[in-house]
């Protein structure tokens, strides 16, 4: 193809996106579009499956059968999200094995929030309420992103995430209305998860590298700071409703902006965790790599068995 032809294709492509048309796997797309999407979708898929670990922690110790079953179902949903997203990513011509390799070697990133420990039962409530809550704010705009398979996966994912968010809030509410010990447990979890949840919406706009391009491709429709503000404005009244205190002394309603002003975020902590030095980066990766390596003989067996069965069939056909 000549340079001119490519330029032409590029233009047609950008026009399609501007017209809100979906890009499908077989359509021509610029290499940069493909790479950016592989990066973002796989990062999202990795977050889903690494995210299973901190919550999975509490399945065996859930305080009631009802909570145990609900948590188990939630963590299973996250596995399902991982599955849809890996599949969406595979349509861009990359295999699941390659994607796992990138995760396991540390080349690919996942959401840093999962590098914090879940040390009490209330953390399960806090994660559902805040982390799934922040995820929804991040993801709802993606339901209308330009890449078809990603947009469709996000529609399914978002429905389930809002269920998770309500379930998490309900756990927190029950604790907040419980005994003093339970209320303290809930407040402590909020104290620990609040700031990491704000960081989850990404670095402040001044430091965000990908935003302009991503906006054009509808991978992003609002800036990180806008999303963060939306999350805060939505969550503060919920905390008030159940009598918990947001751990930010500078948090204050701003009548002029019709929004909450909030205190400074510790971006040093954010970068420390992103760069691999959070409290649980190491154990999360060890758990993922461990499960993958320990599962190798099982996957090999399944493959070898399937081949044998296939051979038997062909022989019978002959």
């Amino acid at each position: 193809m000549s340079e001119k032809e490519i330029k032409n294709l590029d233009e047609i492509f950008e026009q399609r996106i501007a017209r809100d048309e979906k890009i499908e796997p077989k359509d021509w797309m610029p290499e940069k579009y493909r790479k950016t999407h592989i990066r973002q979708i796989s990062q999202h898929a990795h977050s889903e499956i690494v995210g299973m670990l901190p919550e999975g922690n509490w399945i065996t110790r859930a305080p009631s059968l009802r909570r145990k079953v609900a948590l188990l179902a939630k963590v299973q949903d996250e596995a399902g999200h991982g599955l849809y997203l890996y599949s969406a990513c595979e349509t861009l011509g990359v295999s699941r094995e390659e994607l796992y390799d990138q995760l396991h070697s540390g080349k690919a990133k996942y959401s840093s929030i999962f590098n914090y420990p879940t040390i009490t039962w209330a953390d399960i409530g806090a994660i559902g309420w805040l982390v799934d809550g922040a995820a929804i704010i991040n993801q709802v705009p993606l339901c209308s992103t330009s890449y078809g398979p990603y947009a469709r996966a996000m529609i399914r994912v978002c429905k389930e995430e809002s269920f998770h968010q309500r379930q998490g809030f309900e756990i927190m509410m029950t604790l907040a209305q419980g005994t003093p010990e339970q209320k303290e447990m809930a407040q402590d979890a909020l104290n620990r998860w609040w700031w990491p949840s704000l960081m989850m919406l990404g670095p402040t706009d001044a430091e965000s590298v990908h935003t302009a391009q991503s906006m054009k491709w509808k991978l992003k429709r609002k800036t990180n700071d806008e999303l963060r503000q939306q999350f805060i404005d939505q969550t503060v009244p919920q905390a008030e409703l159940i009598g918990l205190t947001i751990p930010d002394p500078e948090l204050k309603w701003n009548e002029e902006r019709k929004s909450y002003d909030f205190g400074p975020i510790d971006w040093d902590e954010f970068w420390q965790v992103v760069k691999g030095h959070g409290p649980c980066n190491k154990i999360r990766m060890e758990a993922r790599v461990g499960a993958w390596e320990e599962g190798e003989w099982v996957r090999d067996a399944a493959m070898s068995y399937a081949e044998k069965q296939q051979n038997k069939k062909t022989k019978q056909a002959v």
């Binding site: 299973m52 065996t60 145990k68 963590v75 991982g82 890996y86 599962g295």
Partner: peptide, 19 residues
């Protein structure tokens, strides 16, 4: 079985064991 959730040999088996 619930203890294994998130640690299966692949996602499909993980989901099945959780089921």
């Amino acid at each position: 079985l619930s203890e294994l959730c998130g640690h299966g040999p692949n996602l499909e088996t993980d989901i099945a064991c959780t089921n």
